[in-house]
Design a protein around this nucleic acid. Sequence first.
DNA 1: GGCACCTGCTACCCATCGGATACCATCGGG
DNA 2: CCCGATGGTATCCGATGGGTAGCAGGTGCC
Lengths: 123, 123
Amino acid sequence: MTAHLDTCDRNDVYAAACPCREMLDLLANKWSALAIGAMESGPQRFGELRQTLDGISPKVLSATLKRLEGAGLVDREVFAEVPPRVEYSLTALGLSAADPLAALRDWVEDHVGDHATGSDSPA
Amino acid sequence: MTAHLDTCDRNDVYAAACPCREMLDLLANKWSALAIGAMESGPQRFGELRQTLDGISPKVLSATLKRLEGAGLVDREVFAEVPPRVEYSLTALGLSAADPLAALRDWVEDHVGDHATGSDSPA
DNA sequence: GGCACCTGCTACCCATCGGATACCATCGGG
DNA sequence: CCCGATGGTATCCGATGGGTAGCAGGTGCC
């Protein structure tokens, strides 16, 4: 019943054998961070995500969404219409993960271009 | 193509051509997130980081630290002693990045194992 | 009737990268 | 003279990201 998490009683991301390593690897990923952010505003179709996540390929988007779905962060809903429609949305868990991810994206947008290491770039 | 990045006036991580994409790719990375967290408590030697970041290989640690150094997040100091000693520490920029990263690690440690989606089969 | 088309996704192929292991270089000590 | 410690690099290899093409299923248009 309970998983065999003997190696990781208290969920330490610094322990290689801890399942949270996988979760960290999933979330600490460019596309995951962007995809989750894109779904904060509500369900998104595949094509919409593909446009929002500028530069992602359909294969990678599909794989990313599958991983997020497998981790319970994203819900996938298929509408048997024509043309086929699929909507991806955040689960409650995914929604809670969106906060730290948003903080990370925010930091990046805020601090990129700083890098005042002496070799000043033409900002 | 990436020569003139005037396409990104306000640093949009969702724009493929924005330099913050690279920064996001750097920070949204398992090892970077762990390494920066490990250096929050002060300068760390190579071997210390290698132990703290359980499971990392020397090559990947070296590459990660170089990328972080190149982005101005980490400072590398070599002591001309014997045996050779090298210390890695966070710059002010790196220190500011440590916060959202800590939030992410914290979320992971807090929410991994949730996934109460019913399907818990190890298959 | 037939063909293009729209959407979502998968298959194939390749470059890149992560990763494990071995090795290098230096110097003191035994 | 070899060993040990330290901080990496070189090399090889498998995984994985990523691009392109194509498929499926139906529907409107001509």
